[in-house]
């Protein structure tokens, strides 16, 4: 009886998971399908996942577009650099934010919230002027700094949540064993934070990799364009969209993200947990 109930629960779990995957994954499936259809088929009323005729030319068209590959390189540089910077800066700062009460925390939380709520369209003009003054418009360094700065609030806010979720007793225990603060941080807090750091890093990477508005406005030369900017040039005036090549380009653009996720998701597992508590 018990075993049967357990098996039913398992089954229900698999069904639920399958529903989630269909909901989350179907648009990509449809995108892939669109990427191998001809323009005539995309403009017909026939609904079918498999194309009537495989139209691989879309991929050739997408790759023939100026700079699809080089802009993917730019995106990777900016996304990896800003992710590294965000984690480097946010990790210690979020610890302070979570464990400290008082003015610094209030100012920190206030800035985090306001900077997320205040419309970007109102910030972009002063920001552009600041960057121009220091010569960082139309530069990947400038874009990296901007992405770092605008992902930081999220990273700080999330990481301080993860820090807050670590029982203070653990730290006190570590401190009692005679470790100084930095040792406690390194030996106890950071290992416990690992899944949170990985989640935050994934977010930083994706938000930079996909970011459109800052890149659009700040980058002027085509050789600096990031992937979203290059992809957006597939959309023409008067709503003319080269749908097939756009879909093909987007499928290609999705591959690096998926590879990155496959690598990172393994690190989402908190295997360090038990050791930290017992140690």
């Amino acid at each position: 009886m018990r075993v049967l109930a357990q098996q039913l629960v398992r089954l229900a779990q698999y069904v639920a998971l399958a529903c989630y995957i269909v909901f989350l994954g179907f648009p990509l499936l449809w995108l892939i399908s669109a990427s191998v259809k001809s323009s005539a088929e995309l403009n017909s009323l026939v609904v079918s996942l498999l194309p009537q005729e495989w139209h691989w030319e879309n991929y050739a068209d997408a790759l023939a577009r100026q700079g699809l590959v080089s802009s993917a390189g730019n995106s990777a540089i900016v996304a990896l650099a800003s992710t590294a910077l965000v984690i480097l800066v946010a990790l210690p700062a979020s610890y302070v934010l979570a464990r400290l009460k008082g003015a610094i925390r209030a100012a920190g939380v206030g800035w985090i919230l306001v900077s997320q709520v205040f419309p970007v369209v109102l910030v972009i003009l002063p920001l552009f002027l600041v960057l121009r003054t220091i010569g960082l418009t139309d530069s990947l360094v400038g874009l990296t700094l901007v992405h770092t700065t605008y992902t930081l609030p999220f990273a700080l806010w999330m990481l301080q949540g993860y820090v807050a979720a670590i029982p203070v007793d653990l730290e006190e225990a570590g401190a009692m064993d005679g470790g100084n603060r930095l040792v406690v941080l390194r030996r106890i807090v950071f290992p416990l934070l690992a899944p949170g750091v990985v989640a935050t890093a994934m977010f930083s990477f994706v938000s930079s990799w996909n970011e459109f508005f800052f890149a659009l406005v700040l980058l002027q030369s085509p050789e600096n364009y990031t992937l979203p900017i290059t992809l957006s040039t597939f959309i023409g005036g008067e709503g003319k969209v080269a749908l097939g090549p756009l879909a093909a380009g987007s499928v290609l653009a999705a591959i690096p993200s998926i590879v990155f996720f496959s690598i990172m998701q393994k690190k989402l597992t908190g295997g360090l947990m038990a050791g930290a508590v017992k140690g």
Binding site: V121, I124, L125, F128, L129, R132, T137, D138, F212, F213, L216, V217, Q220, I229, S232, T233, F234, I235, G236, G237
Partner: peptide
Amino acid sequence: GWDGVYDKLITQFNGGA
């Protein structure tokens, strides 16, 4: 690209670029 070019131009003009 046509997509977003208005936003790009308004920033460029305002920023003198």
